[in-house]
Amino acid sequence: MALMDRLRRRPSPEEVVKAHGAYVARLLYRLFGPGSDIDDVYQAVFVEVLRALPGFEGRAKLSTWIHRITLNVAYQEMRLQTRERASRSAEDLECATADLCHERDDFARADSRRLLYAGLASLDAKKRIAVVLHDVEGYTLKEISEHLGRPLQTVASQVRAGRAELARFVAEAESAGRGLTAPGVREAKA
């Protein structure tokens, strides 16, 4: 009856969401910045988790497995944001509406953590995920290289380039009033 018992022990979708929901939300806030609108990514993470749950074999810890899925989905979201930004950038540069301009001015005065996350969001997804995982979440280059399936050297140079761009972003924000933009960060609840 071992097989039956094992099948019965598999957690239900409800149990999985209940047990891991808060963890995933906190991780997403660390990856995207506090105040970001994480609802869509959160949903995408659990849709992925629930879809794959029947095949989950309990050989990895469920929490580890969900952590990995969260990072993957977060990276997909970052890529999406990069693409969205590319299609919007012309409009952003024009500072199309008064509201948008106003938002940008606010931004220069925002607290440093928000500014940092905005800078991270301005990076293209590959650099962004590398810098977030390395410099915010504290992963080693080797871990990131394994997780993302990129050569170690590539990850190292993405971190380096990302950091330089980040510093430039912050510098531009500091040299005030120059119409900054933080596309990619949805400040819905900030």
Binding site: A22, Y42, Q43, V136
Partner: peptide
């Protein structure tokens, strides 16, 4: 100084997630 403060803030961030937020997302 901004970068130092920003990284300090991000690395020590303990995001608050409320029950109502969790149930809304769930």
């Amino acid at each position: 100084a901004r970068l130092a403060e920003g990284f300090q803030g991000a690395r020590t961030l303990e995001p608050e997630v409320s029950e109502s937020e969790l149930s809304r997302m769930a």
